[in-house]
Amino acid sequence: MPPRDLIVRNPVLEKAILDYLLKAISNSESWWRDPVYGSFRGRSDVLSDYRKRMEGRRSVAQLDQDRKDSPFPRSSNIGVGIEMVFAEFLNPVLLANTHDLDPPLQAVDETTEKEEETLTVFHSQYQKSEDLGKRELLEQSIRETLTVGGVFHKWNWSSFW
């Protein structure tokens, strides 16, 4: 007797999966075009503005111009990139208090409530290994988090030969 939760691949099932995913993607993409709460601008445009702000671009009028036409022609339009001043201070400090700690993690066996030192050492060494290159990624990750509000980390199993 076959297991009850058997998954059998067939064209009908694959068509249903494809239809569901296409609808899901379409719905989700429309969310990005919706205006942001308290604004008339879409979410993608707003994120783009945040990135420009972090780069020290202008904010009063046109983000890409040093001059504007109001209140009079060629009036000043300089941006003061203060965000970056303390974002680039927070970035290494946040790293120092998370990833750079020695060790940055602790393995605890729930059954004994005692630390598993070997596992603590293993995972700490792996997370800090140069092959993984995590520190550089974390620097970018924190910068992204401070710029637009967050970022997604994706972990995958990888063999590199």
Binding site: S28, V151, S159
Partner: peptide
């Protein structure tokens, strides 16, 4: 000739703009 250099979890960053979720 191939030789294993590393094996294990690998991290990548995905920015907000590349991720969709249920509205």
């Amino acid at each position: 000739t191939t030789e294993k250099i590393r094996e294990g979890p690998q991290l990548s960053l995905r920015p907000y703009e590349s991720i969709l979720f249920p509205p």
